[in-house]
Every structure is written in structure tokens, then in C-alpha cells.
């Protein structure tokens, strides 16, 4: 949901159709509701409703189409253009949508995206987002919401969407637990599991903060870039695109750089794993071997978690 031109279709096409940001300017306004089924993690089917934001459509969603639109909603994502000149009107529609949700889908999660933050100068970005967060939280009243500043031109979009899909993954906790065991086996500083087609982050295990530190062994705390997960998604997706321009398909990556050693490879049919190691003794071949051995376990895990949901 969100006003016309706020960027809904653009972000959908980037995350789920792998379109580059430069092509979004060719998108026309969405007419009524565009429904999309996307496979996520293989067996999880997300049913995306991209609701055209022109006033006439919005009015109809809130009146005649109300029960169709607001029933069986798992997540509502409301997009606000950071430069919107009609914030009052946007907020009014937003509050009406919250009403609709509370009527038909009480348990839906609500995410608010303050979009196109690339249009705000770097130096002012934090302050602007903070202000919007306060404003939006106030407008949401009792409803718990999560607010993200986003732009299709940087990693912020991946951060927001990783958070969104995480609320939809069944048994995410179990996955994290096993990822941690795997990380320990690899002596990895960090292990990240990505969904294969979107490269959204679905689980991580990191030795960077104490709450997540390994229970045994000498604990070395590493301070890493806080944006690394989203940046990785962005980098890999961009590189996948370059490969496809050559009619090649990206398969795997191994790096022994000055700063660390890492392997990015298929974990299961539907996931990729990135293992980052700072111990200089460990070679990529050893990491690859570990990934190979962990594959079966993770296929099972994923199978289990999806069955238990049904």
C-alpha cells in the first residue's frame, strides 16, 4: 500500500524480479491490484498484492473492496515517499488501512517504509528518518509497527525486506540454532544464509556481539560493518546481473583477501551460504568441504520447518 509514485512496484521488481534500479523509471502506474505469486525458499509461496495508489483505487479498497483487500493479510507494507507533499492525506489513508486490517486481519504485521531516502542528502538522512519514525509511530496509535528508511539505490531496501520476510519464515529459530553449530564447526566469524533468488537474508550467526558469542572456545570478538548483510545481498545481486549479461550464471565465489577468507556457495536447493573466517590458517577448501557436509542436514531442516507449518 502507499500513494501513487511512492515506489511500490519499483521495489517489488527489484527484489523479486531482479530488475536493476535504472529500469524502474519505465514503470507505469499500477492499475488496481497486481497480484503476484513468488516462490520463496522453494515451497513457501508469497502472494504479493501491489495496490495501485491513485486516489480512486484507494477509495475503492477502503469501501467496496474492503473485505477482499484486508482479509488474510500476513503483512501489510505501507510505502511513504520521503518527499511526499501530501503527508496529511497519506496518513489519513494509512489510518483507514489500519482500520481495515484490525477489522479483517488482526494478526497482520505492519511495516512502514520511508522510501526514496537517496533524495535526502547523506548528512541529513538520519535526522529525517528519525522524524518520520516519530510521526508514523504516532499515527499508528496502538498498532505495533516497524519503520525503515529505504531506497532502491542502496542496501537499505534489502535490510527492510529481509526483516519483512523473516516474519514469514516458519521455524526461523531452529534454523539459526543449526547455523550457529555450523559456524562453530567452520571456526567462522560469521555465517549468513540467503534465500536463493532474492538474496534476502534469512538467518545469520555472528561472533561479533556478545549476546551471540559462541558458548565454548576462545571468543574473539570482531567488530564488522553493521551494514554488511544488506550490502552483501546488493553486491551479489548486482554481480549476478553482470553475469547474466554475458549469458553466464553465477554459481559460487571464494575469496582469500587480505582481510579475511570467505566462501559463498549453495547450501540447499533454495539457499546460499556465506562463511566468513578471520583465522588465517583456514583455507577455502576446508570451508567448502564443511559446506558440502552440512548440505544434507540443512535440506532436512528446511523440509521439516515447512512441513510443520502446514
Amino acid at each position: 500500500m502507499g500513494a501513487s509514485g511512492s515506489g511500490k512496484t519499483s521495489m517489488r521488481s527489484m527484489i523479486f524480479s531482479n530488475n536493476p534500479a535504472s529500469l524502474t523509471s519505465r514503470l507505469g502506474a499500477t492499475i488496481d491490484v497486481e497480484q503476484n505469486h513468488v516462490r520463496f525458499l522453494g515451497d513457501l509461496i508469497l502472494n504479493l498484492w501491489d495496490c495501485g495508489g491513485q486516489d480512486a483505487f484507494m477509495d475503492s479498497y477502503l469501501s467496496t473492496q474492503r473485505s477482499v483487500i484486508f482479509s488474510h493479510v500476513g503483512v501489510m507494507i505501507y510505502v511513504f515517499d520521503v518527499e511526499s507533499r501530501e503527508m496529511e492525506k497519506d496518513l489519513e489513508y494509512y489510518r483507514d488501512c489500519l482500520d481495515g486490517l484490525s477489522q479483517f486481519s488482526k494478526d497482520a504485521n505492519v511495516f512502514l517504509l520511508v522510501h526514496k531516502i537517496d533524495l535526502v542528502r547523506d548528512t541529513e538522512r538520519n535526522a529525517v528518518v528519525q522524524r518520520k519514525v516519530a510521526e508514523l509511530e504516532k499515527a499508528s496509535g496502538e498498532t505495533p509497527v516497524k519503520v525503515f528508511g529505504t531506497s532502491i539505490y542502496d542496501e537499505s531496501l534489502y535490510k527492510a525486506w529481509s526483516n519483512i520476510v523473516n516474519t514469514l519464515i516458519p521455524n526461523a529459530r531452529n534454523l539459526s540454532k543449526h547455523l550457529r553449530i555450523f559456524a562453530e564447526a567452520c571456526s567462522a566469524t560469521e555465517v549468513i544464509l540467503f534465500e536463493r533468488t532474492t538474496f534476502l537474508v534469512i538467518a545469520t550467526s555472528s561472533r561479533t556481539d556478545s549476546s551471540d558469542a559462541f558458548p565454548s572456545g576462545p571468543v574473539v570478538l570482531h567488530a564488522l560493518d553493521p551494514k554488511r548483510y544488506e550490502r552483501t545481498s546488493e553486491l551479489i545481486k548486482a554481480f549476478k546481473q553482470s553475469c547474466s549479461r554475458l549469458r553466464e550464471e553465477f554459481r559460487s565465489l571464494e575469496m582469500e583477501l587480505a582481510e579475511f577468507t570467505a566462501v559463498l556457495d549453495e547450501m540447499t536447493k533454495n539457499t546460499y551460504v556465506l562463511v566468513v573466517v578471520h583465522d588465517p590458517v583456514i583455507e577455502t577448501a576446508a570451508i567448502k568441504m564443511n559446506i558440502c557436509m552440512a548440505r544434507k542436514k540443512f535440506e532436512e531442516l528446511q523440509g521439516d520447518s515447512l512441513i510443520s507449518e502446514k
Partner: peptide
């Protein structure tokens, strides 16, 4: 072009997972 893109990606990865902790690797 692919080689240029590959270099960009590697250049970006380096600092992304560079540890700021006291790390034996940096002196390696």
C-alpha cells in the same frame, strides 16, 4: 565489463568484512 564488475565487487567485499578487532590477519 564482467571483469570490471568483478573487481568492484571484490573491492567492496574487502572492507565489508574487515575486522576492526585486533586481528592476527591484518599483520599477515
Amino acid at each position: 565489463n564482467l571483469c570490471c564488475d568483478y573487481l568492484s565487487m571484490l573491492n567492496s567485499f574487502g572492507p565489508l568484512y574487515k575486522s576492526n578487532a585486533n586481528d592476527p590477519r591484518t599483520s599477515r
